[in-house]
Design a protein around this nucleic acid. Structure first.
Length: 425
RNA sequence: GGAGGGGUGGCAGAGCGGUUGAAUGCGGCGGUCUUGAAAACCGCUGGCCCGCAAGGGCUCGUGGGUUCGAAUCCCACCCCCUCCGCCA
């Protein structure tokens, strides 16, 4: 969410940012509503001030007592209240309209973000590792897994639907090993581990920006009020501090959690239909930070490093790209994507996305910090989130990059303590 | 699920129809004193919104209602605590 005052006082900057993002958000409509809203507030408050004064006078008169004069004033207040309730109803709808609009405006890209139209304009930042050259025909993970008897896509469909995964034996163990290795690595590097609910309420999903605009992407329960299956642990980790003011001395806060993630993938029909790259339920270890405005960009860089560190431990080649303005997610001010080398795609595939949301989520979720030495009152924190990493895609990358000619898969060194075996065969 | 109790400022805790946006204590900030600190003493000290400002409005779990006027009365809902039941 953007600050309404900022939007009206810097409308040119906002207009330019929306254009860079190719957003169709109606800035002029908002400015009109906002102006109407402020006029109405002035009117309503003037009437309220008169009503409050008159009521106070009535109190005095009743004591003296001057009941006749009090009666006349009572009538005045009654008529003010009638006028007021009509104005108030109007103001309520206008304020709701303004807020609804504000909840659907995307974040402003940071000034350092390259301007571009879509994913083709995302500059590559760096590469690590060299994609392996196979001296045999490498298989895709959707063949390796079933051939080894460790992934069963067909029975997953029977149990649930297409785009679900069933793993067994060393496949299940590989999934769990990757999760544990990621969590152990991040907690050793200063992240606090959490174990959050994976059903969350509408306020929580609104705080991070999934609602109201992206409800179609979410699984929703039929309870009243409804709950939503979290699409990422970012949602719950960030909302831990919703409606709170944290002490500046505690910042930056670095959190991590493993959760299953649930996505409808409503608009993805036909994309990545094979294997476990795009599924309705997948595991992810998430990184979330709360930082001051002064350090948030540095924290983004170090979060990116932390995500890449996992791939380096697993010896998986990757590259980092920066998202251009046109490809930036709704709540992000700046985003790096980490892409892992996948032989089956003969290319790099997203495995982590690290974003600095600036104060966009903090304003929605009302997450402030206090710095008695620096300033009076509270300021919004900056929130950041990144995958560290997507577990299913990591497993797929391991299977494909570490496969052998005989169909077996060598376990990366870093996972052997967790797996208990050197080779999956 | 049943019965009872309760939700007030950073915390504890008064108020129970009008000058209470809220006593008091703790905490926090500033000052006096002190070589420094502690103690003591003095002063200040919730949030949000509109406004250039002066000022004004809203806010005592949430939403409605009664009243000229509600933290205070009524209704509904939410949450917390205790006991009982059920349960992994």
């Amino acid at each position: 969410m953007l600050d309404a005052r900022y939007v009206r006082e810097h409308s040119d900057a906002v207009r330019a940012a929306l254009a860079d993002r190719a957003s169709s958000w109606d800035l002029d409509a908002f400015i009109g509503i906002d102006e109407e809203r402020r006029d109405l507030i002035a009117k309503v408050e003037k009437l309220q001030a008169r009503r409050n004064e008159a009521s106070r006078l009535v109190g005095q008169m009743m004591k003296e007592p001057r009941t006749e004069a009090a009666g006349a004033l009572k009538n005045e207040v009654r008529s003010i209240n009638e006028e007021l309730s009509a104005l108030q109803a109007l103001l309520d709808t206008i304020e709701a309209d303004a807020r609804d609009m504000l909840l659907t405006v995307p974040n402003l890209p940071h000034e350092s973000v390259p301007v571009g139209r879509d994913e083709n304009d995302n500059p590559e930042v760096r590469r690590w590792g060299t994609p392996r050259v196979f001296d045999f025909e490498p298989k895709a993970h959707w063949d390796i897994g079933p051939d080894l008897g460790i992934i069963d896509f067909e029975r997953a469909v029977k149990l649930a639907q297409s785009r679900f995964v069933l793993m067994g034996g060393l496949g299940a163990r590989l999934e769990r090993s990757v999760i544990n290795m990621m969590l152990d690595t991040h907690t050793a590097r200063g992240y606090k581990e959490w174990w959050p609910p994976i059903l969350a309420n509408a306020e929580t999903l609104t705080g991070t920006g999934q609602l109201p605009k992206f409800e179609d992407d979410l699984f929703k329960t039929q309870s009243d009020p409804p709950l939503y299956l979290v699409p990422t642990a970012e949602v719950v980790l960030t909302n831990i501090h919703r409606d709170e003011t944290v002490d500046a001395s505690l910042l930056p806060l670095r959190y991590t959690a493993f959760t299953p993630c649930f996505r409808e993938e409503a608009g993805a029909a036909g994309r990545d239909t094979r294997g476990m790259i795009r599924v309705h339920q997948f595991d992810k270890v998430e990184l979330v930070k709360f930082a001051t405005p002064e350090t948030s960009l540095d924290e983004l860089e170090s979060m990116l490093t932390d995500a890449c560190h996992i791939l380096e431990l697993l010896e998986l080649p990757y590259r980092v790209i920066e998202l251009c303005t046109g490809d930036l997610g709704f709540g992000a001010a700046k985003t790096y994507d980490v892409e892992v080398w996948l032989p089956s795609y003969d290319g790099y595939k997203e495995i982590s996305s690290c974003s600095d949301c600036w104060d966009f989520q903090a304003r929605r979720a009302s997450i402030r910090y206090r710095d008695p030495a620096g300033f009076k009152g509270g300021r919004f924190v900056h929130t950041l989130n990144g995958s560290g990493l997507a577990v299913g895609r990591t497993v797929a990358a391991i299977l494909e990059n570490f496969q052998n000619a005989d169909g077996s898969v060598t376990v990366p060194e870093a996972l052997r303590p967790y797996m208990g075996v050197d080779v999956i065969e």
